[in-house]
Design a protein around this nucleic acid. Structure first.
Length: 876
DNA sequence: GCTACTCGGGG
DNA sequence: GTGTACGAGTAGC
């Protein structure tokens, strides 16, 4: 029977571990597969381990085996002890005892379910073939089919079984006004549920402790919660979702179940309670056989937005809105008339619908399913944890396949040591000092998967790391670390990367011929996941909690990167005579002397094939895009008018890096003006127009011609208004609202919107709610908005063009000067002396000087005055 | 420019 | 559960 793996756990029925695999078959039937043949084990290096282990109750077996160590290159395997135990949960006891006696232990911290998955080649969301046999009593799980497996075989299958989704949302009212409800104290009043497949003929359901014809009505919270648990078991979803379910709804429900003495049993088994464990500051929730997906967390990972509240997110990504109800209104609606209550029902239902819509319409899960399949990690763990888990899972599989054993995770004190060393010793990528001023015709080239390619080219791996001084054929990196060449031994990490990169290449090729939208999305998710995986291996060597932490390896990779980029720059400048105007880690920006996109592409292709040929191994420089205009501010910060080839069409856009155009503490006016000015500079190549635009905005602000919405600043109130130490605008606003209209007062956690008005008091005291300003016809403090909001970010952009703050504000008008950079020479002239500008080579006349100070023909520009042209005018 | 701390979403 | 683990943005030096 074929099943797709959703979840794995184990139980101890007769003091022996039994693995349970929860999955679904092709028809969407729930299958649970029991497997009894695996016992926990780990490895020990050292002498006389038998003596230490003898008499330990948990030990089943001890044997000597041959393994390779995954720490450095060694020709031969070595002898280690493999200790097999009875009880996975008691493994740490023996592990720590051995450690304390000075033994080195390996793979002694692998969760048992993953030991099983690694040894039997079973991966999260992948398919397995199981055969029914006989075995233990399996009366512990809810499943359509139960299999006692004798044999489990992994199967290569791309399809996905149909999954059942359930989204829910709870409503509750705080007994403490203004505060977020507390589950220890405040009950749940309503639960809305949405089903992906109709349940009892319904797609939606609302449970409540107040009656309405449209809800399932309950006398008490306890009855409502019991029914909620029943629905979860009966509907039997694979995926449970909601907005912020991980950190609000689910922990809240679990606490209310506890308060009402209802067992939290709604997984696919009768023997494991649903638990929420707090790790760092978030909850990790385990529901046996099911997967919890928090739309909020996925959105935050996948999209860069100014805010992440459900209404903002849905509006921005789906064009859908919540039912507008403010938190402070919920209690009023709950206690209000029948229409009020109906509104609350709609509100609650809508929140569940939106949470599910986000998941479905944006296909949020595709990428994570692809990551699970590739790395072998369970989907739940892909969602709850980061890069490390995925990399380790992959490494453990590949290393153990080849007879290697892997170190345990480091102890906390070692992590601290590593963190300190890493900070001092790990060097990153190389960033070129950008050439100042607006550039024209810049080709962007970058190295295809630079770090993975370097790892492959130089055979970088713990298994090839050469420590001894024997005369073995090896590479030495600029970090002075050596790796044996592939003919001696091919590294495991390089071979993993080859697999990932080749596979990605195949998928990209497949995508070119694929017309079916759904299939295309799936392939795209897969190629994305392959890229993410390949790029994460480098980081793992420099990560202080890594099992394969090695600064020498990490530094080898970055040092080769720096060497490569420097070599590339030198070659391009020397062999082709083009100027490399900027570059960062794996990219170079090359200024050329042609205008047409096609010509530039040709040069780009020529450069990339030349460089790719000159560099060793699989290093490949690729033509990426064209910056028709390029304005660098500093390292890591620039704006560009970018042209990219999509199919056979050039698509243009304004690209900014490191220049924040949206920040939550800026009003919309700032973001919009910034974008507009960047666009004028880049597209019109005209600073005068950009300055004019700015002056025009200033004038409009002064005349009050810009709508107040553009001036609104928002800040979250994190504690009560009174408890702020300093005087802060948003806290002052809340104090004012409290005085004027106590019922409207926002509470902790609310976002406070305000504008700054004119007056003589200190700034914070002049903050007012926008509605109040409109009602009372107050005047905004235009000075503040110009000087403190608009100017700081714009100054940084204009200063890259040698335009000062005074010029922007028109203060330098008395002696208006013309300035521009002319091939490194700053030129200044009095404005009335200058009629136009002229190229000294081709004599082309400009009304406005080219921003980079160079004529199209490459010639130098000079001022043209009534007396003739002159290079330089000095003012006295 | 760096490092330390704070806060997110939810009602 | 043989695993203890965020990350961006801002304030403060």
């Amino acid at each position: 029977m074929l099943i797709q793996v959703l979840d794995v756990d184990y139980i101890m029925p007769n003091e022996k571990p039994v693995v349970r695999v929860f999955g679904k078959d092709k028809n969407g039937k729930v299958v649970c597969c029991f497997f009894e043949k695996l016992m926990p084990y780990f490895y020990v290096l050292g002498n006389n381990v038998e003596n230490v282990v003898r008499g330990e109750r948990n030990v089943a077996r001890i044997e000597k085996v041959k393994r390779y160590l995954a720490t450095e290159y060694r020709k031969d395997s070595i002898e280690v002890y493999k200790i097999t135990l009875h009880n996975p949960a008691k493994t740490p006891e023996l592990r720590d005892k051995l450690r304390n006696l000075g033994y080195e232990v390996f793979e002694a911290d692998i969760p048992f379910k993953y030991r099983f998955m690694i040894d039997y080649d079973i991966r999260g969301m992948c398919w397995i073939d199981v055969e029914n046999g006989n075995g233990i009593d399996t009366n512990t799980v809810y499943a359509d089919k139960i299999v006692r497996a004798n044999k489990i075989r992994s199967v290569d299958l791309d399809a996905n079984a149909p999954l059942k989704y359930l989204a829910f949302d709870i409503e509750c009212v705080s007994t403490k006004p203004g505060a977020v409800p507390n589950a220890k104290r405040d009950g749940i009043i309503m639960i809305s549920i949405v089903f992906s497949e109709p349940f009892k003929g319904k797609k939606e359901m609302v449970l409540s402790t107040r009656y309405d014809a449209s809800v399932e009505y309950f006398q008490s919270e306890e009855e409502m919660l019991r029914e909620f648990v029943n629905i979860l078991i009966e509907y039997d979803p694979d995926i449970i979702t909601g907005y912020n379910v991980n950190n609000f709804d689910l922990p809240y429900v679990l606490e209310r179940l506890r308060q009402n003495n209802i067992p939290a049993l709604f997984g696919r088994c009768r023997d494991k309670y649903v638990v929420a464990r707090k790790i760092a500051n978030r909850y990790k929730i385990n529901i046996t056989g099911r997967i919890v997906v928090d739309s909020y967390e996925l959105i935050k990972k996948d999209f860069s937005l100014k805010r992440y509240d459900l209404d903002f997110v849905c509006n921005a990504l789906l064009g859908e809105r919540k039912v507008p109800v403010r938190h402070s209104e919920i209690e009023k609606l709950w206690k209000g008339n029948s229409n009020d209550f109906k509104k609350l029902i709609r509100y609650s239902k809508m929140d569940s619908i939106l949470a599910l819509n986000l998941l479905f319409k944006l296909n949020l899960l595709d990428k994570y399913i692809a990551l699970a399949k590739i790395s072998g990690t369970l989907l739940q763990d892909i969602l709850d944890s980061g890069e490390t888990t995925r990399i380790e899972n992959y490494l453990l599989r590949e290393f153990s396949k080849k007879g290697y054993i892997i170190p345990c995770k480091p102890l906390e004190r070692d992590v601290a040591k590593r963190e300190a060393a890493r900070k001092k010793e790990l060097k990153g990528g190389y960033v070129l000092e950008p050439e100042k001023g607006l550039q024209e015709s810049v080709i962007v080239l970058d190295f295809k998967s630079m770090y993975p390619s370097l790892i492959r080219t130089y055979n970088i791996c713990p298994t090839t790391l050469l420590v001894s001084n024997e005369g073995i054929d090896c590479f030495q990196t600029p970090a002075k670390v050596r790796f044996v060449k592939p003919n001696i031994k091919e590294g495991i990490v390089p071979s993993i990367l080859k697999t990932l990169m080749d596979e990605r290449g195949k998928i990209k090729a497949e995508m070119k011929n694929e017309k079916d939208g759904a299939k295309l999305r799936e392939l795209d998710a897969k190629q994305w996941a392959l890229k993410i995986m390949a790029n994460a291996f480098y980081g793992y060597f420099g990560y202080p909690r890594s099992r394969m932490y090695n600064l020498g390896i990490a530094n080898s990779i970055t040092s080769l990167g720096r060497e490569t980029i420097k070599k590339t720059k030198a070659l391009i400048e020397k062999e082709f005579g083009y100027k490399v105007v900027y570059g960062d880690t794996d990219s170079v920006m090359v200024r050329v002397d042609v205008q047409s996109l096609e010509e530039m592409k040709k040069i780009g292709d020529k450069l990339s094939s030349y460089i790719s040929n000159m560099l060793p191994g699989i290093m490949e420089l690729e033509f990426e895009k064209i910056f028709k205009r390029f304005l660098p501010l500093t390292k890591k910060r620039y704006a560009a008018w970018c042209f990219e080839l999509k199919g056979d069409k050039w698509v243009d856009k304004i690209e900014t890096k490191g220049i924040e155009t949206v920040r939550r503490d800026w009003c919309d006016l700032v973001s919009e003006t910034m974008m507009k000015i960047i666009e004028i500079i880049l597209k019109e190549k005209n600073t005068t127009n950009a300055v004019e635009y700015f002056k025009n905005i200033v004038e409009k602000i002064n005349k009050g011609e810009i709508p107040i919405q553009k001036f609104i600043i928002t800040k979250t109130m994190t504690k009560t208004a009174e408890s702020y130490d300093g005087i802060q605008p948003h806290a002052e606003v809340v104090k004012k609202i409290k005085k004027r209209n106590p019922a409207e007062a926002p509470g902790i956690g609310d976002r406070i919107a305000y504008v700054i008005t004119k007056g003589t008091q200190m700034l914070s005291k002049r903050a007012e709610p926008p509605e109040y300003v409109v009602e009372h016809g107050l005047e905004l403090d235009s000075q503040y908005y110009i000087e403190n909001q608009l100017l700081p970010p714009l100054e940084r952009i204009f200063s890259a063009l040698n335009i000062s703050k005074n010029e922007l504000l028109g203060k330098g008008r008395q002696i208006q000067l013309l300035k521009f950079n002319n091939k490194n020479k700053k030129m200044v002239a009095r404005i009335e002396d200058v009629e136009a500008f002229i190229c000294k080579s081709c004599e082309k006349v400009y009304k406005i000087p080219p921003l980079n100070g160079t004529c199209e023909c490459g010639g130098t520009i000079a001022f043209m005055t009534p007396k003739g042209s002159l290079d330089h005018v000095t003012l006295t």
